[in-house]
């Protein structure tokens, strides 16, 4: 076990190596992304403030991520309730299909959506990115919500009903508060996925790029690379923050309903 632990620590270092490098270069005054480091600077962060195109992309991304997260979580609630409470004909097939984007290469989702949209004579734009992101975020939302709903003892809802509440007020007074941590967690995870997603956005974004698409175009200009490092640092810190909050809520929900299974997802 001791040698395994050493291996595990080395493995974690391997996993985190790129992320640890980010802030080193983001605060390094050299315009070349290489060792040795020169001196400390916050110049690249201030440079971000001047990139007005990036601000547009950021706003566009936020708009898309919030909408996709809400849509995916809503669709996730329906599906998670259906599978955790009821059994229905074709359940396995239907759920398997809904979860398919989890393994399907994103480029397949991207080109197939693109072709349908163009064929139907529409133009791509933020709406088509939202459509694609909702599709790929829904399986993640379902995975989180399903465990939240499964952890909910069905006799709690029966008890509320037995004590005189209607199905609607039972949902409001018992179900919703108990699965709320799961819902928040699903929203945050979907938001994070949408904010980071590149391929679908690259194909479907139209004239207004999202932040990752804009970032991808920045990579072609060596002059902008330190700024990319600064932007990356901010994005990574925000992602970790959001994911930590999501994990906090998910675990609080698990604790409340009395079964903390540990793992993530």
């Amino acid at each position: 076990m001791k040698s395994l632990k050493t291996y595990a620590v080395l493995y974690l270092i391997f996993l985190y190596a790129p992320i640890f490098l980010l802030p080193l270069f983001a605060f390094n005054s050299s315009t070349i992304i290489a060792f040795p480091l020169e001196s400390f600077t916050t110049e690249w962060f201030t440079q971000l403030l001047t990139l007005s195109e990036m601000h547009g992309a950021l706003l566009n991304s936020l708009k898309i991520a919030v909408t996709s997260a809400v849509l995916a979580t809503t669709l996730g609630i329906f599906a998670a309730m259906a599978v955790s409470r009821y059994s229905f004909p074709g359940q396995k097939g239907i759920m398997g299909f809904i979860m398919l984007p989890l393994v399907l290469p994103e480029i397949i989702v991207a080109v197939s959506l693109l072709i349908v949209i163009l064929r139907m004579g529409f133009d791509t734009g933020a709406w088509s990115v939202i459509a694609g992101h909702t599709l790929i975020c829904t399986p993640f939302a379902i995975a989180i919500l399903q465990s939240a709903f499964a952890a909910l003892d069905p006799s709690l809802e029966e008890a509320a009903y037995d004590l005189g509440e209607t199905p609607a007020s039972t949902f409001r007074l018992v179900t919703l508060p108990l699965v709320m941590p799961g819902i928040i967690s699903a929203l945050l995870i979907s938001f994070t996925i949408s904010m980071d997603e590149f391929i679908i956005a690259f194909f479907l974004t139209g004239a207004e790029p999202t932040l990752p698409v804009y970032l991808f175009s920045m990579l072609r200009f060596p002059k902008l690379l330190p700024a990319v490092m600064a932007l990356g640092t901010i994005l990574v810190v925000l992602s970790i923050l959001l994911i930590t909050i999501a994990e906090f809520f998910r675990r609080r929900g698990a604790k409340r309903t009395g079964n903390d299974t540990g793992g993530f997802l």
Partner: peptide, 14 residues
């Protein structure tokens, strides 16, 4: 006009 005591007690945890 009936009320139930559930096997799992179904005490609302929140």
């Amino acid at each position: 006009p009936t009320n139930m005591v559930f096997q799992s007690y179904a005490i609302f945890p929140h």
